[in-house]
Amino acid sequence: MHVTILSRHRLLLATIAAWLGMSALGAIAQVGGLPTNVKHTDSSPEWEKLREKLFPGRSMESAASMVQLVVPLRAAYGASVPVRIVSKLPQSDNLYVKRITLLVDKNPSPVAAVLDLTRELGQADFETRLRVDEYSHIRVVSELSNGELHTDSRYVKVSGGCSAPPNRDQLHNIGKTFLKVPEGIKANEPAPVDLQIVHPNDTGFEMNQISLLYIPAHFVRSIKVSYAGRPLFDAELDFSISENPALRFNFIPGSGGEIKAEVVDSKEGRYVATLRVP
């Protein structure tokens, strides 16, 4: 093949034209390979199995009347997908949310969190961040104090390809736990609290890039939170929770006291944080 030598200017025009031409081709191309027509409310084979194991023989309401799962439409980064659980009822004496289970169908360990709740929360809303390995449903199951189960789900597509290498530059800070009241407080109204723990939350599936050995699983497995000595919730967690686990929850400020978070990880590391309010 004979190629004439182009001036730099003509060369640039030529390559840009080729680039634009490819874009036109790309526009009519059908995306294939991965499922794209899945609905948020669909089931999955993984969920059918989990459901039978976790809630055998129990009926489940899925009209989002009592619990709603909110995930940004564009969950861009699979290592840390922000999710919000919204309860449609207050934590009142006669009816309240007793337990919340959060799941990611396709993850190797799908049960991300089981939260056992008290009425002291005021409002059983939570936010956290999840690892989502591939296209998957995220589900929440909310169990009320009368035994009813309510569920909601979102189908999440995270951009594929290679995942980020784990960040391991802060191991000396592991377990550092922060509590923050980001929006201020009003007496007797539920107020949000942010809890974040410095922790790699290693899954056991990542390889160390220097030694090429698997990094052993090491993750936060339980958090107990209380206010003024009264429990707000107990959380059992797994490595489907992102690195540096973050949790937003509510409490009802009373006459003052201490918010206390007790954290235990899978290697029996124990960490405590407290925050005096107001």
Binding site: T15, A18, W19, M22, S23, L25, G26, I28, A29, Q30, V31, G32, G33, S159, G160, G161
Partner: peptide, 11 residues
């Protein structure tokens, strides 16, 4: 020159 856009069967 590589194609624009996401990985897909067309490109």
């Amino acid at each position: 020159l590589g194609a624009k856009g996401e990985v897909d069967p067309a490109n």
